[in-house]
């Protein structure tokens, strides 16, 4: 299955019954797939909305009504959704949002890119909030993380972002949906479905009293702390004796893995740290390796965004080198091998 359809099928199997979206390349296979599958299942709701803005607000509506809901888009469309994402966070509503990132800024191009890292991990809209950001690097991970995203989102009542790109979306790899272990989730006692047999309630993010608004913010922060404690995921590859650690996620991590393998064949002690959650960021993992690693090579398909998180994790304790290709260019493993070996010999390892 193609990455885009893998995400769709995974969502359905995780109990997603609503999808709202607006066409944009390179993720169109996903809404197309959902339009078919959600017609097949009972209670399935699919709407091709008039805009991204409308789509994210439909997501809010379905979520507040108690349904499992998803939307997807690519970079410019995700920018349009930011207001709605901020509302979802303020209202504390779950939702799964997929971004098949393309080259930017502006209309950019439709090639795979990682230039929406800041937007995703810092909370791309207004206000003090975070979204959980999951970065799959294979079709199998797209399946596993999409399914888990719904549980994380419901558990913490917070939107979860899946950050991939056109390459992962278009690519086909064999996939199983059997890895999913549903979590135990709290009852949805906040939803708005008519005040039958209970007092009326409302969902809102407007809190005019500044003291109360401050408390709401602290409450969100406590939640984000919990997420940071519980949900960090990170993959480590050939790190044990590594002198250089490449740090990369998603498509770049795939390329980096190829490069690391090749460098190892040449006898270079190189490993890979692959963050799977971009927020919360696996800072502790990076910090842990700072004791044995002499150089961190941050490798991104952008002009350098995740590097800030690596530097924040290390707080100046180790040297960091950046290699990136923005604009939708897909670097080759050989490119990276050259960077690694030149650094390796320059540093005299």
């Amino acid at each position: 299955m193609r990455g885009n359809t893998v995400v769709g099928e995974a969502a359905i199997r995780a109990g997603c019954t609503c999808y709202f979206g607006y066409p944009i390349t390179p993720q169109n296979e996903l809404p197309e797939y959902m339009s078919r599958r959600l017609t097949e299942i009972e209670d399935g709701i699919f709407i091709q909305s008039e805009s991204e803005i409308s789509a994210i607000n439909m997501v809010l509506g379905a979520s507040v009504a108690g349904a499992r809901v998803m939307t997807s888009s690519s970079s410019p469309g995700i920018s349009l959704k930011q207001e709605g994402i901020s509302f979802l966070c303020g209202d504390e509503l779950p939702a799964v949002i997929v971004n098949m990132v393309r080259g930017g800024p502006g209309l950019g191009n439709i090639s795979p890119a990682q230039s929406d890292y800041f937007q995703s991990t810092r909370g791309g809209g207004h206000g003090d909030y975070r979204t959980v950001v999951l970065a799959p690097a294979s079709c199998q991970e797209m399946a596993d993380l999409t399914m888990e995203a719904f549980d994380i989102s419901d558990y913490y009542r917070n939107p979860v972002l899946i950050l991939a790109d056109g390459m992962l979306g278009q690519m086909m790899e064999p996939v199983t949906f059997e890895n999913y272990k549903p979590r135990e989730l709290p009852k949805k006692d906040y939803i708005i479905d008519g005040a039958k047999g209970r007092p009326s309630r409302f969902v809102r993010s407007l809190i005019l009293n500044t003291k109360d608004m401050e408390e709401h913010n602290w409450k969100l922060m406590r939640k984000y702390k919990m997420i940071t404690k519980n949900e960090i995921k990170c993959d480590e590859f050939m790190m044990d004796d590594a002198k250089i650690a490449v740090v990369a996620y998603g498509t770049a991590a795939r390329i980096a893995k190829g490069a690391v393998k090749r460098a190892r064949k040449e006898g270079l002690k190189v490993g890979l740290i692959r963050p799977i959650t971009l927020w919360p960021y696996p800072s502790e993992v990076i910090k842990k390796w700072a004791r044995s690693v002499s150089l961190f090579v941050v490798f991104e398909m952008s002009a350098g965004q995740m590097i800030e998180d690596v530097e924040l994790s290390l707080k100046g304790s180790s040297e960091v080198y950046f290699y990136g290709r923005p604009g939708g260019v897909i670097p080759t493993p050989m490119e990276l091998v050259k960077i690694i070996s030149s650094q390796y010999y320059q540093k005299g390892f």
């Binding site: 709202f20 997501v59 509506g61």
Partner: peptide, 16 residues
Amino acid sequence: DCVESAHGRGGAIATA
């Protein structure tokens, strides 16, 4: 029961 909407988005929320 009530649900707040962002400015102008009532129609989308009500739809869903």
